[in-house]
């Protein structure tokens, strides 16, 4: 459930509703407003802080991080989330690091290849 709050806040920031440096609702305000428990919002804010999206100053509430490149940071966060999901799956499959690298390389090449092919098609059209 806290994932929904994380998404909700990042969406607001990406859309420019909440600007860097601007104060965002307090945990209790957001909880009351979105009918979600305080503890859930607290956890979402912690997650957002860890990702560098918001900054919480004790006793003063939270603001949107004054980052020059927020969209990039958000994308980076997505990337890291995907990466750890991949590693967890690899763990379940009991893959050794070498075969993980191999798979990543293979995927990277075919992804690049597809990208290059698309570029080619773009040029000829």
């Amino acid at each position: 459930m806290y994932g929904q709050i994380v998404e909700q806040v990042t969406a607001k920031i990406l859309a420019g509703d909440w600007l860097p440096g601007q104060a965002i609702p307090s945990i209790r305000q957001l909880a009351a407003g979105s009918k979600v428990s305080v503890i859930t919002v607290k956890r979402a804010y912690l997650e957002l802080e860890r990702a560098g999206i918001i900054v919480t100053r004790p006793g003063k509430g939270s603001i949107v991080a004054e980052s020059s490149d927020l969209p990039r940071q958000l994308a980076l966060k997505d990337f890291h989330a995907g990466l750890s999901a991949m590693l967890e799956a690899a763990d379940r499959l009991q893959m050794d690091p070498a075969s993980v690298f191999q798979e990543v390389e293979k995927e990277l090449l075919s992804h690049r290849g597809a990208g290059l092919a698309a570029e080619e098609r773009g040029k000829t059209a």
Binding site: R28, Q29, A31, A32, G33, S34, K35, V36, S37, V38
Partner: peptide
């Protein structure tokens, strides 16, 4: 009903 109860959450 849930919305009304949730309003209480705003007060610590």
């Amino acid at each position: 009903v849930l919305e009304a109860i949730a309003e209480v959450l705003g007060d610590e």
